[in-house]
Amino acid sequence: MLVPLVTSLRTAEPVVVDAALLDAFQAAASKHTLAALRSDLSAFDLWCRQHRRITVPAGPGDVADYLRSRAGQGAKPASLARYKASIARLHQLLGLVDPTVAPMVKLTLAAIRKDKGVAQRQAAPLRFKGPVSDVERDPARGLNLRALLESCGADPVGLRDRALLSLAYDTGLRASELVAVRLADILPATDRDARLLAIPRSKGDPDGEGATAFLSPRTVRALETWLEESGITQGPVFRRVYVRRYKARPRQPGRDLATLSGREGYDWRKALPRPAVEARTEYSVGNTALHPGSIGPIWRAIIRRAFDSGALPDLTRDDLEHWLKRISGHSTRVGLNQDLFASGEDLAGIMDALRWKSPRMPLAYNRNLAAENGAAGRLMKKLG
């Protein structure tokens, strides 16, 4: 709830809170927007208290100093723009003058952008065959999704991870959209071996217009195996798998009855012989969906297991650590984007497949491939 947060902010004098307006905003905003707003406002309020500033209403100088402070702590221009927007949103909801429109704030943000640059660090791509030019004919190499899928084990964790990874690549879903997949969203397709996935809502579709993605036969097989193993018949498809491991225990002989304590209430069963116990592992599947923040760690765990099993022979230990630092829950989306570009799909087709409203992100994800396959790249390859 926003009302308790807003009323707890450091103010010069009591602020009139329009609870109905805040409730309407909460009903219209996504849970991710609300979580980001709460986090940003709490951080700004803490900074104001530490520096003896007033959070509401904030002055242009306060906002400018805050942005410079966060930039000095390593915040990127994109993050600073979000902080600025959150402060603006707060003042708008309270009917106060927006301090972020002042020239001081705009010029401060422009100076930081000029100094640091606006390029954002891109998640490492998980491409189906790795860094190849011809996605159809070239053999897989390097870090590639095919090897990761093949290396997933036959235990419940491996079966879930294979289905999760395969579906993530097929659809290019974001982490929050991936964990929201429900069994009822999987629909029949014209191809009897394939399926369709209904996407009721996404980041680019806050109003719930809906979209549909294709699920390959490879993903359908992985899904069917996982669902059969897990016993899931409805609700979230991807859930946490709890693992409990028991150590082996050798046979323990019983105690001599003559040595037993004669105290009243002594548990004589402790003196009985105990049979040997073999090591075993038990699995159980949770009832709720995975958290979006778990997707990146799951990808990294799959990669580590694949490397340790020898499924990624092209990678050295240093290569592995380099990749793991850049892998995120977004990596399958970036990988699909790049494979579509490498296969010759045009920008409109890529935007449609990944449900983008703007060409900015697909162009950014394909910047390196575009340079390699562009006019200059093609010429240099001919010249040798």
Rank of each mutant, 00 (worst) to 15 (best):
E177D: 11
Q234I: 02
G59V: 05
N287E: 15
R162P: 03
A110T: 04
M380D: 14
G335Y: 13
R201Y: 08
Q92W: 13
I112L: 14
P250M: 11
G208I: 01
G172V: 00
T233L: 10
I232V: 15
Y266T: 04
W356Y: 15
F238P: 08
A102T: 02
P362E: 10
A154W: 07
G74A: 01
T316C: 10
V6P: 00
R195I: 07
L347F: 05
L165F: 10
P14K: 11
G374A: 05
A194R: 10
W47V: 00
G335C: 07
P14R: 13
T332R: 09
A175S: 06
S343C: 00
R378D: 02
T190I: 07
M361I: 08
L34N: 03
T233C: 10
G204R: 03
I54L: 08
G235N: 10
C152F: 11
R305W: 05
D191V: 11
I327L: 06
A194F: 15
K31M: 01
K129R: 14
R137D: 09
P139G: 09
R300I: 02
R38L: 01
R333L: 03
A140T: 01
E228G: 11
A342K: 05
V157A: 11
P131K: 06
L22N: 04
F214C: 00
L90I: 03
A198M: 06
L215R: 12
L347I: 02
L22I: 07
T171E: 02
T171N: 03
R162C: 02
Q122C: 00
P275V: 05
Q92S: 11
L336M: 06
R38K: 13
R378T: 08
L363N: 12
A102Q: 13
T108G: 07
R269A: 03
N373A: 12
G344W: 13
L90K: 08
L34K: 14
A301K: 15
E13S: 14
N368P: 00
D207P: 00
